[in-house]
């Protein structure tokens, strides 16, 4: 469905250093800096896949989405989405895709979302009954029936995002580009948006590409992740596999009924969090059974659980420990 080969994108940015003297100097001579937002990025995405773009701020995720949706021209390399080159902005291509940006909205601010829906129906030249059916279906699924008649400016952030999704999906696109769709939403609203995207993907077979800060979003939604760091593709594959490779360890969290004897904990493994009656140990996956058995035998355990380490931490370690030249690791 999507095919990117050796994508590069370089911006020329005017550098304006602080200070009056520098400002004066830049009147005469502007200094430019080349910023490489993407460098030699290649990947293929099959129809119906849900793929997450991960990476720190400024890694090039948004740039990648914009190139894929045809808003930006790549400096070099090639992209095709379906059978189209996005930058041609062919009508058929535009009917096929959609872009949702968590930070920017297409809803008309002073008018109810229903007006934006009506406008998009006209823009995409959709037959009325078909568009009405889609709209009803999406509105029901997101439970926003009473909202679409209220002026957008009166809606909360989460309500607006739901309406954005309806506006973006009205023409039943087969490729969804979602740029931080859950940004700023509270946890339960994040979960609902996530859920909705998964259901849309499963019922229509649409391809979903998503960027997000929230590791949870990506973990819950995308079986496959593409990690971009400083413009380079550094990982492409399954998130759990990545997690296991970076941190082949488990977390054992224990609650105690009374204070354990000093020294006992350290003998079991590396203690990563500790309060009076609670401790969390990091233990290599292979030794978990043994460690649990030992803990139950030697410590005053009231409750014990075994978990994977948090994804945020893994990503931090992964990106922090990245070699500067950024060789591709694959699963």
């Amino acid at each position: 469905m999507i095919r990117a080969r050796k994508l590069c994108k370089t911006y020329r940015v005017h550098r304006r250093p602080p200070g009056l003297l520098e400002a004066l100097r830049s009147v005469v001579r502007r200094r430019y800096e080349e910023v490489r937002a993407l460098c030699d990025v290649s990947f293929d995405i099959a129809p119906g896949e849900r793929v997450g773009f991960l990476g720190p701020n400024g890694a090039g995720k948004t740039t990648a989405l914009k190139i894929l949706s045809g808003l930006l021209y790549p400096t070099s390399g090639s992209v095709t989405v379906g059978d189209f080159v996005p930058q041609d902005r062919r009508t058929e291509f535009l009917h096929m895709i959609t872009l949702v940006m968590g930070q920017k909205q297409q809803l008309l601010w002073d008018l109810p979302p229903a007006e934006t829906f009506a406008m998009n129906r006209a823009l995409f030249d959709l037959p009325r009954d078909e568009a009405d059916a889609t709209q009803k279906e999406l509105v029901d699924l997101l439970e926003i029936g009473p909202l679409i008649g209220k002026p957008t400016r009166q809606l909360s952030l989460g309500e607006r995002m739901k309406c954005e999704l309806v506006a973006a999906l009205l023409h039943r696109p087969r490729v969804l580009f979602l740029d931080e769709p859950t940004i700023g939403l509270d946890v339960s609203m994040q979960a609902r948006v996530r859920d909705f995207i998964r259901r849309y993907n499963e019922s229509t077979g649409a391809t979903v590409l998503l960027t997000s800060h929230y590791m949870e979003d990506v973990a819950a939604l995308c079986p496959r992740v593409i990690v971009i760091d400083k413009g380079h593709l550094v990982y492409d594959g399954d998130l759990r596999t990545l997690a296991r490779r970076i941190r082949p360890e488990k977390r054992i969290t224990m609650h105690f009924s009374s204070l354990p004897a000093p020294g006992e904990l350290d003998r079991l493994g590396n203690c990563v969090a500790r309060s009076e009656l609670q401790a969390t140990l990091a233990v290599p996956a292979a030794q978990v059974t043994e460690a649990v058995r030992a803990a139950l035998g030697r410590l005053p355990i009231s409750d014990i659980s075994v978990e994977d380490p948090p994804l945020e931490e893994i990503m931090q370690e992964f990106l922090g420990g990245q070699p500067a030249n950024g060789g591709v690791r694959s699963a």
């Binding site: 304006r16 009056l20 400002a23 004066l24 830049s26 009147v27």
Partner: peptide, 12 residues
């Protein structure tokens, strides 16, 4: 004033 002047140049 200095900030104002720098601002001015930024928006020349």
């Amino acid at each position: 004033l200095r900030v104002g002047l720098a601002d001015m140049f930024a928006y020349r």
